[in-house]
């Protein structure tokens, strides 16, 4: 212990308080639930969640496994990051595969290039049942979407995995109570009160590693449905689409065929924090094809049991 790293007691800013709240939730759920799991997509929010989980239980290893619901349509950089992060934290990785759900006939096959985002719900719920998980940590934030803005930090799911927004449990003070009956489960969202800017300021402060695609780089893209899609195994240029080489980065990470890039020169964490502080389009509005379908796309997916 060296004196220089000791902090004055008044050095508490909003990031310290958000971090503390998240760590509190992580510890509370682990203490109250039998078999939790942490949902890990390899994106920035789940990276922050894993980082916080490691802090919450250090120096012990993570008291729960990490689960990736794998659509098979990932950016390769994200899979690399997932494997690095899991190894660095000594975590146990469970992969729940959407391809397997398709092969087993649990969901209809949308074809090799078709969207798989919504299919994940079945894969996720099947895996939760198969492993007997009674709580699943997710990195969702309330500032992402108007339906998420309504959700409790500990959010109850019935025996069919459904969320009922009209019947949420009261959640008073920080008395998170996590008891469920067999077959039911909880989703726990320790990052509920973080905004996108908080996430980036925290990543910068903690100097965390992230998938490379979050930083500005040159890549081939096509313009489709108002998005810049990266040309690759899951996005083939269609007739009439022009392939352009642009300097871009990703603000969110989802399936490669549903996640748009943004034009950006932000190649460092400091530059990204500046960019986000000045942004006038939301992260989902800028980049996510999966939310564009209807006014209540997220609410509808959540009701079914989506993340």
């Amino acid at each position: 212990m060296t004196a220089s790293i000791l902090q004055a007691p008044d050095m508490t800013d909003h990031l310290d308080l958000l971090e503390s709240h998240a760590i509190f939730i992580l510890r509370e759920v682990v203490a109250e639930c039998e078999k939790p799991v942490l949902l890990f997509s390899g994106g920035k929010d789940s990276a922050v969640l894993l980082h916080l989980a490691a802090k919450a239980f250090a120096p012990q290893s993570l008291p729960f496994p990490v689960m990736h619901v794998d659509t098979g349509q990932n950016f390769p950089e994200v899979l690399d990051f997932r494997d690095d992060a899991v190894a660095r934290h000594g975590a146990r990785l469970v992969v729940a595969s959407v391809q397997e759900s398709i092969d087993q006939g649990r969901v209809a096959d949308p074809g090799p290039l078709g969207p798989r985002n919504r299919l994940q719900t079945v894969t996720l719920l099947d895996a939760i049942t198969a492993h007997g998980f009674d709580a699943a940590f997710g990195g969702a934030r309330r500032d992402e979407d108007k339906a998420r803005a309504k959700e409790r930090i500990l959010s109850f799911r019935d025996a069919f995995g459904q969320w009922d927004p009209r019947q949420q449990r009261p959640e008073l003070w920080q008395l998170y109570q996590g008891r469920v009956n067999p077959g039911e489960h909880l989703r726990a969202f320790p990052l509920s009160d973080w905004t996108e800017l908080d996430i980036w300021q925290y990543i910068e402060r903690e100097n965390m590693a992230l998938p490379k695609i979050y930083f500005a780089h040159e890549r081939e893209v096509v313009r489709r449905d108002g998005m810049l899609l990266a040309v690759g195994p899951f996005v083939e240029p269609r007739p009439g689409e022009e392939v352009e080489r642009l300097v871009v980065r990703f603000r969110t990470v989802g399936d490669a065929n549903l996640t748009g890039a943004v034009l950006s020169n932000a190649a460092t964490l400091a530059a990204i924090v500046n960019e986000i502080a000045l942004a006038n389009v939301s992260e989902r509005g800028a980049t996510r094809g999966d939310d564009k379908f209807s006014e209540t796309a997220m609410e509808d997916r959540k009701r079914e049991g989506y993340f």
């Binding site: 790293i5 000791l6 902090q7 007691p9 310290d16 971090e19 503390s20 760590i23 916080l52 802090k55």
Partner: peptide, 18 residues
């Protein structure tokens, strides 16, 4: 004998810190 928060060891802590 010791106090540790998310950002490491410290001499003192205020309310709201884990």
């Amino acid at each position: 004998t010791s106090i540790t928060s998310g950002s490491g060891p410290r001499h003192a802590a205020t309310a709201g810190l884990s």
